[in-house]
C-alpha cells in the first residue's frame, strides 16, 4: 500500500489558515514522487509553520527558532542521499535565521526551503515579520509597521540559490508541482509561499492574493531553466528572474523564477575532496575496527608529526 505522508497528529492551525494548503501540497508532492518515507526528512524552526514536521509522516525535526537550515544542512551533508525539506516561517527564515538563509545560498547543499510567507509572526500573536511592507497596519499591530520589507525572491537570488520560486497556498496544484521540481533539484531551492494568516493579517488575505497572482508559466516564452552546457544563459536568466522578483502590487507573479542546474551542489564539491564520500558518507561509516578499537592508523594519517 502506498505510504500515507500525512501523520495522525491533530493539526492545530486556525481555521482558514493558508498552512493547510501547503501541508496538502507537500504530502501530495511526496506521494507523487513516490519517495520512500525513510529517505525524506523535514526540519523546521519555531512558529505556526514550525509544526509542519509533526503533521508529515516522515522523520522530522522541529528545531529551534531560526535554526532549521543548519540542522537540515548537517543531515544532508552527513548523508547526501537523503532528501531534506525545510518548511518554516518568514520570521524564522528571514528574521532570526537570515544569516543561515544567506549562507545556505552560498553552500547550495540541496535543501528544499519553503517559506510560509504570512508577513507576520503568527505564533507570537501577529507582530510584523521581515516580509511586511513599510506603513502596513494589520489588525494585530498597535501602529503601522516602521520597517521596510525584505523581498524573499530577490534575496534568495542574490544569496546564490540555484532554484527560486513562488507559490500560493490556495493554488495547491501549482504549489505541488513546484515542490516536486524543487525536491528533484540537486542544489538548494527556495519557495516563497504566499500564505494568508486570517487570524492576524487582515490585509494580505486569500481574496487579496487571488485578485493579484498570475502564473509565470502562462507566458509560453518564460523559461527559467539553465541546463548543463547552457551556462552562458545564466546571466540573462538571472536578470530576468530578478526583474520578475521585484514585481509586487497589483500583479504578483508565481511559478519558477530561476532554475540553474549548472551550479555544483555542496555535496558534489565535498565529493572532490573527501574520499568515498558518496559511497560511504559520514552517516553510514563503520568507525569501529573488527577488534572494537579504532581502525584509523593515526601515525600514517599524521605522519608529519613523527620525529625519528
Amino acid at each position: 500500500m502506498a505510504h500515507n505522508f500525512k501523520s495522525d497528529i491533530a493539526v492545530d492551525w486556525c481555521p482558514g489558515c493558508g498552512d493547510f494548503g501547503i501541508l496538502t501540497s507537500i504530502t501530495q508532492a511526496l506521494s507523487e514522487l513516490n519517495l520512500d518515507p525513510k529517505d525524506v526528512i523535514s526540519t523546521s524552526g519555531i512558529g505556526c509553520s514550525g509544526k509542519t514536521p509533526h503533521y508529515l509522516n516522515i522523520a522530522g525535526v522541529h528545531t529551534l527558532h531560526g535554526r532549521s537550515i543548519p540542522f537540515a544542512t548537517g543531515i544532508k551533508l552527513s548523508n547526501p542521499h537523503l532528501k531534506v525539506i525545510v518548511p518554516g516561517g518568514d520570521g524564522d527564515m528571514l528574521g532570526i535565521g537570515a544569516g543561515h538563509f544567506v549562507a545556505e545560498g552560498r553552500r547550495n547543499s540541496g535543501l528544499t526551503i519553503m517559506i510560509f510567507d504570512n508577513e507576520v509572526y503568527g505564533l507570537t500573536k501577529g507582530q510584523a515579520a521581515p516580509t511586511m511592507a513599510l506603513g502596513e497596519k494589520t489588525k494585530s499591530l498597535a501602529r503601522a509597521n516602521v520597517f521596510t520589507k525584505v523581498n524573499p525572491i530577490t534575496l534568495a537570488l542574490t544569496a546564490g540559490y540555484s532554484f527560486v520560486a513562488r507559490g500560493f497556498s490556495f493554488d495547491m496544484k501549482q504549489l505541488k508541482e513546484i515542490i516536486k521540481t524543487a525536491i528533484l533539484h540537486e542544489g538548494s531551492s527556495v519557495i516563497d509561499i504566499l500564505q494568508p494568516c486570517p487570524t492576524y493579517n487582515n490585509i494580505n488575505t486569500m481574496e487579496w492574493y487571488r485578485e493579484r497572482v498570475y502564473k509565470l508559466e502562462d507566458d509560453k516564452s518564460w523559461d527559467p531553466i539553465i541546463a548543463p552546457g547552457n551556462e552562458a544563459q545564466a546571466e540573462e536568466k538571472f536578470r530576468k528572474a530578478y526583474e520578475k522578483g521585484n514585481e509586487w502590487g497589483d500583479r504578483i507573479p508565481t511559478g519558477i523564477f530561476y532554475d540553474n542546474r549548472t551550479i555544483p551542489s555542496f555535496h558534489k564539491r565535498l565529493n572532490e575532496f573527501v574520499p568515498n564520500y558518496y559511497t560511504n558518507p559520514p552517516a553510514t561509516q563503520i568507525v569501529t575496527g573488527s577488534d572494537g578499537y579504532t581502525p584509523v592508523d593515526v601515525e600514517a594519517t599524521f605522519s608529519e608529526k613523527i620525529i625519528h
Binding site: T43, V61, T63, L64, R67, I69, P70, F71, A72, T73, G74, I75, K76, L77, S78, N79, L82, G99, H100, V102, A103, P282, A283, T284, Q285
Partner: peptide, 18 residues
C-alpha cells in the same frame, strides 16, 4: 557562518548516526 550554525549543523549530522 557562525557558532549557532556550528552547534546545530553538527547535531543535524548526529541525527543520521555520524
Amino acid at each position: 557562518e557562525d557558532e549557532i550554525s556550528a552547534v546545530t549543523m553538527a547535531q543535524g549530522a548526529a541525527l543520521t548516526g555520524s
